[in-house]
Structures are given as structure tokens and as C-alpha cells.
Amino acid sequence: MVYDPKHMIRFEEVGFRYGNGPEVLRDVDLDLAPGSFHWLTGASGAGKSTLLKLLHLADHPTRGRVEAFGEDLSELKRRHLPKLRRQIGMVFQDFRLLDHLTVFDNVALPLRLARVRDSSLRKDVGEMLDWVGLADVAGADPRTLSGGQQQRVAIARAVVARPLLLLADEPTGSVDEATGTRILRLFQELHRLGTTVLVATHNELLIERFPHPVLRLEDGQLGLVRA
């Protein structure tokens, strides 16, 4: 994929509202450079999840311009969106694992979507499960795992296809401090390997411990509070 290396994702005066409701995002300007790591904070209901939804191209803004990987979304045909979405790994707050698939098959899903051959897929998924420390539960039903383990399965699924951008919504919200720190170390490692990372969190402790630029959403408006 060819895109301007200065801008992985760029928002210009983006606004978003649900139906005829009030605007939950207003005049959002955002520029995520490749290889950057950002925290996204804000009170509950400030619009973090909505912003993440727009960032992983799950919805269109009601106004403004969004550019992803060099493509202006307003000019992009709908059929080209899945290819862009596959460049983004998303860790959902509620994990969103598929209960009818094993841990292995949940992690393998993005590779199957990318039509990766089975032999290569097995190797990649195996390595990824090793990396998140879940190799021994590869065949398990995700419902039998602890919250922390499920979160790590969700992370493995988000990064297994080597996305250019990793987004995470409250990845430490339902795990203890030790597991939260471990998850953040995984993100740090991905960032070191070149992945652009944006993590939405309430956890001030983690923000202090890992000193990256902090974006803050207040009343639907985005500002940079720590460069």
C-alpha cells in the first residue's frame, strides 16, 4: 500500500453524530504519524469509543475529512474499505471473541480474511500465541479463559496480521495491574517493531509509566495535553 509516510491517519474538522442526536465529536483534527504511540484519554462519554470507531473505519464522519493510508475516505469506494480495515488491528474493550471458535481460530481469523496459506497461518498464529503466553490454551474455548487471557487473545488477533496501525480501547480495563502492565509491554514491543499505536485508557498510572504523547477528548473536542 502506497501512502504519504507523514500521515497514517489524518482527520480534518471531523464531526460525528448518531442519527439526529447532538454531535459527539466536534471539529476533530488529528494526525497520526507512522511509528507513533499515543494515549487517548477523556471522561466516560467524552467520545473515545466513537473516535476509535472512526479511526478503524467502522463508520463515516458526518462532516469533515478523513484520510487513511493516503486514501480520502469520501472518495473511496465501499468495496475498497475491507482492504484498508485489514491494515488496522483493533483491541475492543469487550474483547469481541467468537465463542464458537477456539482460541487458535479466533487469532487466525484476520489471516484467513487475508487468504494466508494454512501452513504459514499455523506458524504465525503459533508464534503469536507464544508471544502473548497462551500457547498452552490454543485449543480452548475462549469462554473458559480469564478476563486477562481473553484480553491477550484479542491482542493476538489484532496484531497477528502485522497491521500498520494498532488501536486499543481500554485494554487494561478488566485486568489486574500486573496483567495491564504486561499488556502494555506487548504494545511497547509492537511499537518498537514499527507499529503505530493508539491506546484509549482511563488509567493515569499507565500513562505516567509509559511516557507517550497524550490526546484528550473533552465534550467531543480533541486536544494534545502532553507532547
Binding site: A58, P82, K83, R85, M90, R96, L98, L113, A114
Partner: peptide, 16 residues
């Protein structure tokens, strides 16, 4: 709908 939405946002094409 839940599973379909997930597949959709992680990059599954409609045909898939």
C-alpha cells in the same frame, strides 16, 4: 449481527 459486525470491522469483504 454481533459476529457479522465484528467480521465486517476487522476487514471481511461482504462476499466473504
Amino acid at each position: 449481527a454481533h459476529e457479522v459486525e465484528l467480521l465486517h470491522v476487522i476487514g471481511a469483504a461482504d462476499r466473504w
